[in-house]
């Protein structure tokens, strides 16, 4: 059996034992250089978000409001009645005019209505939920947003390529989570039959 350790042993297991009395020493040349480079990179990462706000076309939506879920459901129904052009698997299809407010309701387990939009035009999506939290994910462009009941999120989108873009829910919303989908149909610019 060994007895208690001598002071030399103290330094033996290094990081596991108390350090030498004065453990601060001057930084070595490579440490100083790395610290400088690392800090500069941190500042670049920080300013990068502001720079992208200036140069990028893809910005995080900020505009949002509180809304009563029942009011939102009623407004969505009125919006659908005004702009419905078709029906797809039981879900109403709307063709709102470019630049307008477009209601998009997430509820267990459906996004409604189906949106028929025009390529290159900008739409203000007014998104909310009438029950639990949902995730709004446009595929395959892979743009993703959180949808909360009681909060209206304004998301301005400008679909710039024609095609069919499914929406899927990517926030767990209950046992039917994997059947919750929706659809955005983007028509070519100037195509017939898209105007209301």
């Amino acid at each position: 059996m060994s007895d208690a350790r001598s002071p030399e042993d103290e330094r033996e297991l290094n990081t596991l034992t108390p350090p030498e009395k004065v453990w601060w020493k001057r930084l070595g040349p490579d440490e100083r250089r790395w610290l400088t480079i690392a800090f500069v990179w941190c500042l670049i990462l920080f300013t990068g978000m502001y720079v992208w706000m200036g140069i990028g076309d893809q910005q995080t939506p900020i505009e949002s409001y509180r809304i009563d879920p029942d009011d939102f459901a009623a407004e969505t129904t009125a919006f659908i009645e005004e702009h419905q052009v078709d029906e797809m698997e039981g879900v109403p299809v709307v063709a709102p005019p470019p630049g307008s407010n477009v209601y998009l309701q997430a509820s267990q387990f459906q996004f409604r209505p189906v949106l028929q939009l025009e390529e290159g035009e900008t739409y203000r999506l007014l998104v909310s939920s009438t029950d639990v939290q949902h995730g709004l994910s446009f595929q395959p462009v892979n743009l993703n947003f959180q949808v909360l009941p009681g909060y209206l999120y304004v998301i301005e989108i400008t679909p710039d390529r024609p095609g069919e873009y499914p929406m899927i829910c990517n926030e767990f919303c209950g046992l039917g989570h994997h059947v919750m989908t929706g659809m955005v149909i983007v028509a070519e610019a100037g195509a017939e039959g898209n105007a209301p």
């Binding site: 698997e89 039981g90 892979n142 499914p166 899927i168 989570h177 994997h178 059947v179 989908t181 929706g182």
Partner: peptide
């Protein structure tokens, strides 16, 4: 590639749309 988390069925076989 856009695959969502926490989704039991990536084929969406029971989804209306």
């Amino acid at each position: 590639l856009g695959v969502p988390r926490r989704v039991a069925d990536l084929e969406y076989s029971d989804a209306p749309l």
